[in-house]
């Protein structure tokens, strides 16, 4: 029986993300999704520097104009440039949606892991809690929460996070329930692995893939909730150019000049499709069994 030092490991790949991205853009849907999302992120970062107008200056004589050379997408009811306002709005949307959805995912992931793995009364309690939250339509629930907390950007993030957490908790819990019974979890227990290690190393990587798609899918939903709340005056407050505010203001003059509503709706649709295709492709390529290639590498 010879005893030798541990084998040389393949150097840890900080590039764990790079091959994933590479496989992503090799598919048409993935390339499209990446392009849209990248464009949105770039706009969010650089919009203030590239927009033709500041989006706040009013120009009443030129109000409700259609697309023209000086205003590519036209102007709103106060003569403000729509292109500038929509591009500046991207930053607001992502500032609400990204932290909100990420928080909801972490929250849901933790709840789902605990409920699914622990089972018993903990599971029952979590499920009842989640069912209660989901029993309300998300906008109604968000409205109630905003009414209690007061309308502000931070509260909007909290409200959206709470509203969206049950979804990811359910998805996680369902995967954990299936995994908990699988032989390799018992094999880990037989090897002497503790609960934390089993959850962290063997359960987590196998439940995280469906959350990718949820992340990407929920960002447009979060934007919609933001838009809905702002439209009702309970979210972002005018004159901040969030898409909800633009829509809300645009509806006042929708019969004379549908431009504001039209462009904002198109931006919403494009964002939704972009994030959704990204999420779906991400799910496909991140699972080594689906892609037949290398999966996420686990290093210690």
């Amino acid at each position: 029986m010879t005893i030798a030092p541990a084998p040389d490991r393949v150097p840890p790949t900080s590039a764990g993300l790079r091959p994933l991205l590479g496989r992503l853009v090799r598919r048409p849907a993935g390339a499209f999704g990446v392009a849209v999302v990248a464009a949105l992120l770039l706009v969010a970062v650089f919009a203030p520097h590239v927009v033709p107008y500041d989006g706040a200056t009013q120009d009443i004589p030129n109000r409700l104009q259609g697309p023209s050379g000086s205003h590519l997408l036209g102007t709103d009811g106060l003569g403000r440039d729509l292109l500038s306002r929509i591009l500046l709005g991207v930053r607001i949307e992502l500032a609400v949606a990204l932290p909100a959805v990420c928080t909801s995912l972490v929250l849901g992931l933790l709840l789902g892991l605990v409920a699914g793995y622990r089972g018993g009364w903990v599971d029952n309690a979590v499920v009842v809690f989640m069912d209660t939250i989901q029993a309300f339509p998300s906008v109604v629930l968000a409205l109630v929460l905003v009414a209690v907390l007061g309308p502000s950007l931070t509260n909007l993030v909290i409200v959206v996070a709470i509203t969206f957490a049950p979804q990811s908790a359910r998805v996680t819990r369902a995967s954990v329930l299936a995994l908990r019974q699988s032989p390799f979890i018992e094999a880990e227990r037989a090897l002497g692995a503790g609960t934390l290690r089993i959850i962290g190393v063997h359960v987590l990587p196998n439940v995280i893939a469906p959350l990718f798609i949820l992340l990407a899918m929920n960002i447009p939903s979060a934007i919609t909730v933001e838009a809905g709340l702002s439209f009702l005056g309970m979210g972002v407050q005018p004159p901040t150019p969030s898409w909800g505010v633009i829509l809300s203001e645009g509806f006042a003059d929708v019969y004379e000049a549908p431009w504001a509503v039209l462009w904002t709706a198109l931006a919403l649709v494009l964002t939704t499709i972009g994030f959704t295709t990204l999420g779906e492709t991400l799910r496909d390529v991140s699972d080594p069994r689906l892609s037949g290639a290398k999966g996420l590498r686990y290093d210690r």
Partner: peptide, 20 residues
């Protein structure tokens, strides 16, 4: 089924050493 699906063989075989 008794092998953790996302670990390579080398990681599966050294997993007991990391555990203990």
């Amino acid at each position: 089924g008794s092998l953790s699906p996302r670990l390579r063989v080398s990681d599966l075989l050294t997993e007991p050493y990391r555990i203990h």
